[in-house]
Design a protein around this nucleic acid. Sequence first.
DNA 1: GATGGAC
DNA 2: GTCCATCAACGCTAT
DNA 3: ATAGCG
Length: 301
Amino acid sequence: MDKEVVINKQKLKLTNLDKLYWPDEKITKGDLIEYYREVSKYILPYLKDRPQSLNRYPNGIKGKNFFQKDVGNMPPDWVSTYKILSESTNKKVNYIVCRNEATLLYMVNLGCIEINPWSSRIQSLETPDYLAIDLDPEGISFDSVVETALAVKEVLDEAEISSYCKTSGKTGMHIFIPLKAKYNFEITKEFAHIIAKITHDKVPGITSLERSPSKRKKKVYIDFLQNNIGQTLAAPYSVRPSPGAAVSTPLLWKEVKRGLDPHDFNIKNTSKRISKIGDIFYDVLRKGTDIEKKLKKLDYA
DNA sequence: GATGGAC
DNA sequence: GTCCATCAACGCTAT
DNA sequence: ATAGCG
Ligand SMILES: [Mn+2]
Ligand SMILES: [Mn+2]
């Protein structure tokens, strides 16, 4: 039922460990916590020093969920938090900042099946560490997502831009470009927009840049608007609150081909996969990209 | 999941 | 002590 | 200002 563990020298209460978070698959909250303990070494670099947007499912994937950013003074002392002024409400929001395994498990115990970090760190909130291209299919096959991802890859390869790809764990894929916190969100977003437009021109039949779902039926939405402060995507190695407990899994580009099935990467087998092949996203937080130079190479009028 | 008031 | 109601987002874009 | 989106 409940258990107290010591991690990072902190006593942490883990509760309701036998609650069925995925009733059909018989996967419990305890299984979820066990997964995050196993992969913590690999997921933590993508959470470190980043404000966390909580998406809580305290009663599992079939229960009601809610978002939480402001944790007030709810967490114990040893959980790092950071207050950020919200532009829209003019109120200070006290975010959890994940810095270690104990904090990760604290969040998971709150019902966070998925982990949603900001793309910027508190040391440099205005400059993201990576650019994200988010591929969201709207009533179209996953093979079309794959085809779109490969089109993006082709565009980036032509300009010799390094890119890294993962399943979202739901229905789409994410492509990351390392930036080393060198550009603000406005420049990053404009760059992402250009990549999206060139890709759309390459495969106009299966893609769309329309924001309204009704205007992009049966297309893959090339979502470049996640490149804004505080906009999040599920982290690499995050579990998703979806059937089968799929995991957002980094892939080798050679694995991105027709027939790829995102359900093949899930809470049951991802830990083993990582131990075997390591972290495919390793360079995302280490390399950079010279946007000015690459813009010239893209040569987009 | 945590809190607090009613019972 | 138990039960139950209540609470827990935000930034951007287009109109 | 507000609706829609993720
Ligand atoms: Mn997506
Ligand atoms: Mn999206």
